[in-house]
Nucleic acid binder design. Structure first.
Lengths: 209, 209
DNA sequence: ATAGAATGCGAGCTATAGCTCTTATTTTCT
DNA sequence: AGAAAATAAGAGCTATAGCTCGCATTCTAT
């Protein structure tokens, strides 16, 4: 009924031309996701938008899901770049300042491509490959946990790992929610207030008497 | 090409028999969502599982989306029942105790039907009707804001409304995340610790010196 | 220059999703 | 009892999604 590998190996691009194709496909996928939503992002449409034939598309991506996964990964990388940068500068700061930086970074991260972020968060069914792509969540958690452990003496919490979970989850939710569902919080003034409050929340928690 | 309303009005069930049909359909939808995931939940499959013909299905639900929306609403109602109950008992308590109750309620709420909750949160593309069904989020926010306003004298926050946003968002994210992605936090002991920490987080924030 | 690999193409297949419409059954009302 | 309204049934239509496969084109390397 279905012979499996009669077709060519669906492998990574090696020549430059093909890398361009792959890039075009991923870019087109992102564009359509943002402008038209997940439903309209059919593989045919993606190929067409990318100026690539449907056959070529399937040479590099075994499924629509794989395409979306690539977009997610690319977006996560973009975000991690921002976060990483800020956290680096922050490593040696005391908690009071570091947390503030972290919150700021979180907001920055959510501003990288808010529309795409929203689509990825709200419209994409996490199924199959997509199910397991919370990479950057884990990563941030690990980074922040490391920071906390290095500053253990400044803390008053019973369990550092749990504390990291509490902080990261809260900050992420706060910024996510603000950026995606409360545009009124994005004026300069409101953003500042939000940062203040989020920082107060977390710092108070970490250093409570 | 397409004549619009040549068919019967797609209206609400009035007789008892039809109410049963509707219930069966909603229940079947929920069951399939949980057991098979969103993709497998085709209208045909739903009708079959409900023991109802596809024609009858479309007599009451104009689309698959409407069916899912019904499931979401039913689930939200279930959750709001729990939350409402707890918040009622809590209205006159001081913040220290009230927040603890609220956190507990949040966890309870997430335990109503975790599997369904997860599917609804992770697999359902928020599109069309679904886009606007965050009813219960708004509701909880309003309820908690009312509580905070009634206890304004106990607070030390610059903006009560913003404070409500911060608290509700954090608690929701914490419990959501814990219940859905950290089953190890669901032992009795771990849950207690989580409640302690979440409460400390929020109370510290609301009453900071 | 030419073989062989890598890449690109796109007509077209298969499957199924969502949905309509006609016909049959049950309920309600008089 | 019998007419009319409400409800149920399900064969089957339309559309399109995802994807394959044979062939054409372009690269790479000798």
């Amino acid at each position: 009924m279905a012979r499996k590998p009669l077709t060519k190996p669906r492998k990574y691009a090696t020549q430059e031309r093909s890398r361009a194709t792959v890039d075009a496909l991923v870019a087109a996928t992102a564009r359509i996701l943002v402008k038209e939503g997940y439903d309209k992002a059919s593989t045919n449409r993606i190929a067409e938008t990318a100026g690539v034939s449907i056959g070529s598309l399937y040479q590099y991506f075994p499924s629509k899901e794989a395409l979306v996964a690539a977009v997610v990964e690319r977006h996560n990388e973009d975000i991690m770049e921002v976060v990483h940068a800020v956290l680096q500068e922050t490593a040696s700061l005391p908690i009071g300042l570091a947390v503030r930086q972290l919150v700021t970074a979180a907001i920055e991260a959510h501003r990288v491509d808010p529309k795409l972020h929203r689509v990825l968060a709200e419209q994409i069914p996490r199924t199959g490959k997509l199910e397991t792509i919370d990479t950057h969540g884990r990563q941030i958690h690990a980074l922040f946990l490391a920071y906390l452990q290095a500053h253990k003496h400044e803390l008053r919490v019973p369990d550092v790992s749990l504390a990291a979970f509490v902080c990261v989850t809260s900050i992420e939710a706060l910024t996510h929610n603000a950026v995606l569902h409360h545009p009124e919080m994005l004026t300069d003034k409101a953003t500042k207030t939000l940062i203040d409050e989020a920082s107060r929340l977390v710092i108070g928690y970490l250093q409570a008497p």
